[in-house]
Design a protein around this nucleic acid. Sequence first.
DNA 1: ATGGTGGAGCATCCA
Length: 264
Amino acid sequence: MKIASFNVNSIKARLPRILHWFDEAKPDVCVLQEIKCIDENFPASEFEDRGYNVEVFGQKTYNGVALLSKHPVEDVIRGVPGFEDEQSRYIEAVILPEDTDPVRVGGLYLPNGNPAPGPKYDYKLAWMEAFTAHAESLLALEEATVLCGDYNVIPEPQGVYAPDKWREDALFRLETRQAFRRILNLGYFEALHHLKPEPFYTFWDYQGGAWDQDKGLRIDHLLLSPQAVDRLVGGDADRAVREPNSGSKETKPSDHVPVWVEIA
DNA sequence: ATGGTGGAGCATCCA
């Protein structure tokens, strides 16, 4: 089964492109970030028509996440447990495929944190600490778990086109990378980092011709529990989705591309 | 000198 994550930067502005990608990539499960709408305005029927169960944790104007699954879902969680958060940034559910074992999928939109230092960066670190505690509690369940989304973390210098320009940025500061490694060190496996031999990016800024010059960042990640790694078959980042005319000539691409893993 | 990219939603905030 294919499990994907896609920061769409507004579901409304992106719908034709998202549906085009869904029809081609046919993910079994997909978590979306930055839907930028309240639950009632999510275009659920477009996905239900394609056979998906739709779970939304929306927010007006900013943030907002959703989880779409072709298989039945149970135990849906909205928000990181135990963390008081005014922003909609996390959704989780257990996926129950008919033909294979369950997989728990968490979809996250981790705070950007700029400017750093400052209150926004403090919020990012607090969010990461709460998420790390939750990730640790999930490992104790000994289930196949995939925690994926826009982590807003560049894990290593190879994940950014000009690391020296990004040293003080909230996405790349040492403190940020340390906090990300604490999640990995619990026992999570950063799937695409290990699957793909060459450095790659998942985000290109709209400004300054970043796409044309391939000035990107690797900030969308899929973290797998050991039980999920046992079933890991493959995965990739769908770079072509960032092309100006991919899927729709009338609308612009997201600044992120979808990332996905195949789980047996 | 100014704007520079894009989305939400209507003045600015966020990324």
